[in-house]
Amino acid sequence: MKRSAFYLLCVFLFASIGAWAAAGGDTAERTAKTCAGCHGTYGASPGEFIPVIGGQHAEYLKKVLLELKGKKRPHSIEMTLMASGYTDEQLEAISEWYADKKWADSKVKVNEYNMSATVSLIENYSCFGCHVDNGKGEGETPAITGQAPGYLKNVLMKYKAGLIPSDEMAFLKDVSEVEIDAMVSYLTELGRNR
């Protein structure tokens, strides 16, 4: 009886230390903070074109960083070069550290768009079928609501052009840039308005 209580206590303690500690602890603490020079303190990027990473899903961040390092994801030259400077373990630890931070919705002003038409588009493409919970996403599917709009558009245009291989995002081939613009504005605003 006593032993099982001790065991439970241990399980509880380990779980509460937090995932990033398990994935490297002080290693993440010392390596992750430097990213804020571009992404803002705790990943709350204030600009239009550099993404918010604080509070993004760890599995997604890991996947992207490892793909960037392996030159399998040509979406950012800067990040391909940065990722080359870390071990896989460091990239995983950094991902856990940022996932543990609070998501900060982008405050950037967005372009005007037709709300009802854009909501229909998002429903038709079933964006929130994968990016569940109104775009919060889960696991390897990223949070997209409240993301920096310039970044979001840049990435969606690269999916559209087939530059980032993805079966799920292949539908963008047939979506116009005007429609992408509208969806980006809607998704960014949805963050601050939720």
């Binding site: 804020a36 803002g40 239009e48």
Partner: peptide, 14 residues
Amino acid sequence: GKHAVDWTLSIWSD
């Protein structure tokens, strides 16, 4: 060029 401007916003805020 757009990233350059964004970078200043991020690092000033940091």
